[in-house]
Amino acid sequence: MRILVTGATTPLGGEVGRRLLTDPAVEHVLEAGAEPFLGDAPRLSYRRCDLTRERAVHDLVHGDARAHGVDTVIHLALHRSARDEGPRIHARNVLALRQLLAACAAVPTIARFVYPSSAAVYALRASGPALLDEDAALEFDPEAPQWIRDRVEADLTVCARMGMSRLAIVVLRTAEILAPDMGSQLWDYLRSRVCLRPLGFDPMINVISLEDAAAAVVLAAGARGQGVYNVAGADTLPLSRLIARWGRRDVPVPRPLLAPLYRLRAGATGLEFRFDLNLRRFQFGGLIDDARARADLGYRPTHPLRWPRP
């Protein structure tokens, strides 16, 4: 396999790259990222690339990827900060993906496209099921924050090409990766010594480790067929337990106070947790059912979180 990995300088990109290089069946990994040149190694080359520029995407795919005979593309480049909004962020999250997909479909050697989406695309409602399968409703609320709307649009952009393009496309709707520098809302939430949650609600939460998320991406890259798959992590527990196991103090607070309190926190400390992004999840949970990924991809979460010492 010859693989192009975008977003290679993110923690997930780094872990995916490392895993791919341990597989002798992988002949070459072409990494693309926003950081300056990282250096090449045997079977590994790096290309700095701003995917928001159509020309850069074109040159990456028709130049380097074609030259290396890339057959599989893993697109991990996604804007991670929930504080940033606007057309520039939309271009990075959605337009870059659309351009990359179109370019990949035009290169004859490229046969497979893997896109790790997010479980945040699902609509969470009190009347919804506790376990969301891949057919569950997506969040189309026009009032939803751009962070969510971008992820839904990106997910559907990829799904819409499934069966319409010669590429075999895999979308992995992954549980929240509880790790630093991954744009994890919960990681940021748990950085405070006191964690406020809505009074009267203690939903079940599932989180995934970086290792398991990367393992799912590598499995999807090497699998046959295409489809949408939920990828859940090894840790499923109530929000209050998650807070306690992280060594934080769990303080239930009337729900209407939470959004302003966390806005104040964000303003004062620069931290990224936004209650409006988590409003429904912190009341109604919304675990994902990964039965399809287990059956088709052979996925099993085997790396529980490394919990901090109390």
Partner: peptide, 23 residues
């Protein structure tokens, strides 16, 4: 029932499940 504060959590802990087809 899932939208009722406190009741939803007590019910969930003792095994009550919201009546969706998938559940």
């Amino acid at each position: 029932v899932a939208a009722f504060p406190i009741v939803n959590t007590v019910f969930a802990r003792i095994g009550v499940v919201s009546g969706t087809r998938q559940n």
